[in-house]
C-alpha cells in the first residue's frame, strides 16, 4: 500500500530531513512511527500526502508514484487518504458538521448520504452533540477529534495521523485508537506518528523508529502470549 524505496528528502536549505528510508506498509496494517521531534516523522507523512516530493528514491502510495504527479493526480490521491493533522487544519468559519462534511462535498456525495456519514463519524469520536458548534468554541482535544472524524468520514484506504492523541487524555486516546483499529480490521492502512511511548506500548503494533532522518528500527508486534 505504501512503499518507501531508498527515499531521501533534502530541503532547499541543505537540511536532510530523511535519508535512505526503505519500508513497506501493506493493506490492513497498523504502524506507529516514532522518534524524537525533528526525527523526520512529519516529513515522512508529508511525502505520502504529496505535500513534498522525495529528493531521491522511489515512493509509491496507493498505487500512485509520488515522485512524479500532476496537480490533478495529487488532488485525487489525497481524496483516498484520511489525514489527522497535528495542528488540526480546521475551517474556522464553518461548523463542526461542515468541517467533517468537506471531504464528502469535494467528492460530490449527495447531501442525504453525506449527512448519514458525517453523523456516523462524529458519533465515533463522541462529538455528535457538537455538530452545530464552531471549532473556536471547542477545546483542543475536541478540535483534534473533529479532525479525526474528518479523516475517516470518506472511508479512505490510507489513514495518516500526526500526533492524533497529543491533546487527548488517556481515556479518549484509547477510544480514538479503537476507532483506528476498526478501520484496520476492514483493510485500511494506518500510519500514526506519535511519541507517546505508553500508548505505543499498550497498542501492540508494528513500530517504525526514526532518528535524525534515518530508519533506526522496524519493530514487529510482539507475539501474543
Amino acid at each position: 500500500m505504501i512503499k518507501f524505496d531508498n527515499v531521501s528528502k533534502r530541503y532547499a536549505d541543505g537540511q536532510e530531513a530523511l535519508s535512505d528510508i526503505s519500508f513497506e506498509v501493506s493493506r490492513g496494517e497498523f504502524a506507529f512511527i516514532t522518534g524524537h521531534s525533528g526525527a523526520g516523522k512529519s516529513t515522512l507523512l508529508k511525502l505520502i500526502l504529496a505535500m513534498e516530493t522525495p529528493s531521491s528514491g522511489q515512493l509509491i502510495a496507493n498505487g500512485v508514484n509520488l515522485n512524479r504527479v500532476s496537480a490533478t493526480q495529487i488532488a485525487r490521491h489525497r481524496r483516498q487518504i484520511g489525514t489527522v493533522f497535528q495542528d488540526h487544519q480546521l475551517l474556522h468559519d464553518r461548523s463542526v458538521y461542515d468541517n467533517v462534511a468537506l471531504p464528502l462535498e469535494i467528492c460530490g456525495y449527495p447531501p442525504s448520504d453525506a449527512a448519514r456519514r458525517v453523523r456516523a463519524a462524529l458519533d465515533k469520536v463522541g462529538l455528535l452533540k457538537k455538530e452545530k458548534s464552531f471549532p473556536e468554541a471547542l477545546s483542543g482535544g475536541e478540535q483534534q477529534r473533529v479532525g479525526i472524524a474528518r479523516a475517516v468520514v470518506n472511508r479512505p484506504s490510507i489513514i495518516l495521523a500526526d500526533e492524533p492523541t497529543g491533546n487527548l487524555d488517556p481515556g479518549l486516546s484509547a477510544e480514538v485508537m479503537k476507532v483506528f483499529q476498526q478501520f484496520q480490521s476492514v483493510g485500511v492502512c494506518l500510519l500514526v506518528a506519535s511519541h507517546d511511548a505508553a500508548l505505543i506500548e499498550r497498542f501492540n503494533c508494528r513500530t517504525i523508529v526514526l532518528e535524525g532522518g534515518k530508519l533506526l528500527a522496524d519493530q514487529k508486534p510482539r507475539p501474543l502470549a
Binding site: H77, R78, Q80, F85, P103, R150
Partner: peptide, 15 residues
C-alpha cells in the same frame, strides 16, 4: 488558510 485546508483534503483547484 481555507484554500490550503481544501487542498489538503483533496479538493481540486477548480473546487
Amino acid at each position: 488558510a481555507e484554500i490550503l485546508v481544501i487542498k489538503l483534503v483533496g479538493g481540486s483547484d477548480m473546487y
